[in-house]
């Protein structure tokens, strides 16, 4: 499912971001443009981190920004952004890979999360994703 959801227009490569809030905004742009999410969903993802801390950092270098379905999701989707320079969340947590998750209910995204979890368990794949430069590099890893 990850492979079919991560279409060309959902994947971005950027140099870096001035801070993590900008990174989340840029990383969610494809979902916003395609109408998967509303602007308020982006703000909800940011305020979640502000109130609960950077728990969306799943492992070193990888974050999965997300909020709740009722925060402005129209359709389930996922976007991916890879930054050349790492983006820092706090002194310890810095990130280069952003999977922005938009879940439209409590359950339909769970298979997708299983897939992402399995992908992230594979160290070789994660390090290959970190050095991906174009869409083709990403899709062949999935």
């Amino acid at each position: 499912m990850l492979r079919s959801k991560l279409t060309d227009e959902m994947v971005q490569f950027i140099q870096g971001a001035k801070d993590w809030t900008e990174a989340i905004r840029v990383a969610s742009e494809p979902l916003l443009k395609q109408g998967y999410i509303e602007v308020r969903y982006v703000e909800a993802m940011i305020s979640n981190v502000k109130s609960f801390g950077p728990y969306i950092v799943l492992m070193p270098k990888v974050a999965m920004p997300h909020a709740r379905p009722e925060d402005g999701v129209n359709q389930m989707g996922i976007s991916l952004m890879i930054t050349e320079k790492s983006v820092s969340f706090d002194e310890e947590k810095s990130v280069n890979i952003f999977f922005v998750l938009a879940a439209d209910d409590e359950s339909s995204h769970l298979d997708l999360l299983k897939e992402i979890s399995e992908f992230l368990t594979n160290e070789e794949k994660v390090s290959a994703l970190l050095s991906a430069k174009k869409y083709e590099d990403v899709i062949k890893l999935l």
């Binding site: 979640n48 728990y55 998750l101 879940a103």
Partner: peptide, 10 residues
């Protein structure tokens, strides 16, 4: 986790 549907499920 904060929302109970992403990080915590994983």
């Amino acid at each position: 986790c904060g929302n109970g549907l992403g990080t915590s499920f994983m």
